[in-house]
Amino acid sequence: MNKYYRIMDANFNRAREGLRVVEEVARFILNDPGLTMEARELRHRLSLAQQFFPGGGVAFLHARDVAADVGAAAPPAGEEERDVIQLVLANFKRVQEAARVLEEYATLCDGEGPFKEIRYRAYRLERQVVERLRQLGPEDSVPPERPVPVPAGGYHCHRSRAVCRIDCSLYVITGDKFGHGRPIVEVAVAAIDGGATVLQLREKDFTSRQLVDVGHQLRHLTRQRGVTFIVNDRVDIALAVDADGVHLGQDDLPVGMARRILGPGKIIGISTHSLEQALEAQRQGADYIGVGPVYETHTKDDVLPPVGVDLVRQVSARVSIPKVAIGGIKAHNVAEVMKAGADGVAVVTAVWAAGDVSGAARELLSRVREAGAGNR
């Protein structure tokens, strides 16, 4: 146990130190009380999490052995010119990596903690802090950002890779008519308990008022649980409930227009049904794409013919942004689409219609990870 506590102690310290750096940037450079309090709360949650392990925080202190740490004398990384944005990105990376280590080792130490939630809240906070820093002018002493290299294929994201990040391993879409009369929020809680990494509100028959009411509830839930929250089609609803982003169809608003309305910090996904559409979505600056329907599906009235796994394979070879396979995805065919190059799967009935929602989500996520998409 002591050797595991040594690992966890080092990563508790690493995460808190990174958050402290971010907190000072939010406090003294951005003068933003909201971002400052978010960083501070995450740091305090890490400290409180130690109390839920056998022996509490004192046990981690006793496990510390700096003199015997073979990594303490490692040579420092090569020095390079950095501005405040690179400083923030580097420290968020420390926080996210440390939270992942804590999440894994907690299971070996008879304890648990909010490490996954902290990790995904850190992803969101990273996007918010970096976007705020980029809005500052030269008079605020923030050096201009270096250009982002254009990868092969021509994709140029105007935000850093870390800022664009979304874990789409298990992307669950609401389907009230498939929920057997259960409230949407109740099913959403169960799906998140099972491991959903993204939740999308898609209810075509709901009024705007209903979407706002349910959207506020799901926003509160996903923010508490560290899950990305997306609204389907409706940019106005996404803004009203402060969702993390919006998912658009081919006939909806163009990406550029949606970006101007939502602002640079929000996530925009696009449904694509051909290689040409996928490449165009990437060119326009989408953060991720849906590819499908891969298999036959009946969750929508205007469903298109299946595009097959071959399209997933073609898109994966040409498109660098995250790709989510959708349409008829079930536990038995997850491995097939993942091996074709998908970064995650989007489902409706496979989770929403299940008798055991958490169990269904857990099985899907397990199969996604078994196919090699768990650590992204």
Rank of each mutant, 00 (worst) to 15 (best):
D236P: 14
A98S: 15
P33F: 07
A68R: 13
S320C: 05
R283L: 08
C109L: 15
E126V: 05
V129Q: 01
A371Y: 07
V357F: 15
M257E: 15
R16N: 11
A373T: 06
V334Q: 02
V231Q: 04
F115M: 09
Y5A: 04
E280R: 13
P75H: 08
V187A: 06
H156P: 04
D302N: 14
L221D: 08
K300F: 04
A73S: 14
G71C: 05
A59T: 11
V163E: 04
D140P: 14
D236E: 15
S169E: 10
A258V: 08
A77W: 15
V291I: 13
L46M: 09
R362P: 06
I270K: 13
H273Q: 10
Y288E: 08
R234W: 09
V291T: 02
E145W: 09
V368M: 11
L136S: 03
S141D: 15
R234A: 00
R40Q: 11
G269S: 08
P33Q: 01
F206N: 01
V70K: 00
C164P: 05
V70R: 00
T174D: 02
F115P: 01
A59K: 13
R45C: 11
P305T: 06
V198E: 03
V315Y: 01
G179F: 08
M8T: 05
G194N: 12
A162V: 06
V95F: 09
P183W: 13
H44A: 13
D176N: 03
L218F: 06
I237K: 07
V130K: 02
A196I: 10
A342H: 00
G18D: 09
R20K: 07
Q86M: 14
G308T: 01
G56C: 04
H156R: 13
A353Y: 11
H158C: 06
Y155M: 08
G374L: 08
A286P: 03
P151K: 12
V235T: 07
L275G: 02
N91R: 15
L48I: 12
G355N: 14
I173C: 07
R82M: 15
V66Q: 11
A39P: 02
Q277W: 10
R127D: 02
Q277S: 12
S160G: 06
E117G: 04
A317S: 00
L108P: 07
F53S: 03
I326G: 03
A98H: 12
F60T: 09
V227R: 04
Q135K: 14
I237P: 05
L239A: 05
A99C: 15
V84Y: 04
A286L: 12
L364I: 11
E24S: 02
F28V: 06
E131H: 08
F229T: 04
F28M: 02
G249Q: 14
A238F: 07
L125N: 01
D251M: 15
E41N: 12
L365S: 04
A373P: 02
L311V: 00
E23D: 03
V351D: 07
L304K: 14
A72D: 05
I173R: 06
G355S: 13
R124H: 13
R121L: 09
L218A: 01
Q284D: 07
K266E: 07
L248T: 10
A10D: 07
